[in-house]
Design a protein around this nucleic acid. Structure first.
Lengths: 110, 110
DNA sequence: AATATTCATCGTAATATTGCAATTAAACAA
DNA sequence: TTGTTTAATTGCAATATTACGATGAATATT
């Protein structure tokens, strides 16, 4: 009914799904890539960089922030967003483990 | 308006988002993990393994199949699903590249 | 042929997501 | 204070997703 039955799955499976979901929109992918590329903090110019309306970008940033992948610090009238390396590493570990489950297995079917 | 503006993003960004989205549900994560664990093809017992209704599982399998991550072959009255290693590798390469963009960068901000 | 089994598809309800206009909030500048 | 800038929030419309009962199609069993 439009709502995922998370209680049927393990914590890890739900975590993977949560990160998957946040990467499940190209705007959020683009935001993260831009934050990495800029290397230093970026402020409001994400709006023109991405090309969506300001409220939309703000909403995507909120989701990334809620997951802890980025954090924003107020800098005068603007807000400075950047990657949270610690959380990124943790996420990467989880996702990489999921992506690498193939190497532990010899595929010989179908 | 509920629809992603894919035209504003690169092919790669959209691909990453597509794979992210398919991993964005714990049932699909669980299905893939189970298929890896079983090593040999698994058929209808995914339904009791996962604990969702048969049409729901069928729908999730369809999405995984459409992306090419798995394929199913009819075997009598049942259908035998398994991982498509080639596509999985390709997907893994794309996602790993995305996840590893941090290592090319020295994070020293905020 | 008649029945059973297995899975896909259809239809539908409930909920989530995406996007933006309008507005608000906060900090700065004059 | 008054205006300006920047970003968050609100409210809403359009669309997507999730889930499952009912049904259908295909094969196997009797």
């Amino acid at each position: 009914m439009g709502v995922s039955k998370t209680e049927k799955f393990t914590t890890k499976q739900n975590e993977i799904a949560t990160f998957g979901k946040v990467f499940g929109h190209p705007a959020r992918v683009a935001i993260l890539q831009h934050l990495f590329k800029i290397n230093t903090c970026v402020c409001g110019d994400l709006v023109e960089e991405i090309g969506l309306a300001q409220p939309t970008i703000s909403q995507h940033l909120k989701e990334l922030k809620m997951l802890g992948l980025i954090h924003g610090t107020v800098e005068g009238t603007s807000v400075c967003y950047c990657i949270n390396p610690k959380k990124w590493m943790k996420m990467k570990k989880l996702m990489t483990e999921f992506l690498n489950q193939d190497i532990t297995i010899k595929m010989d079917c179908c």
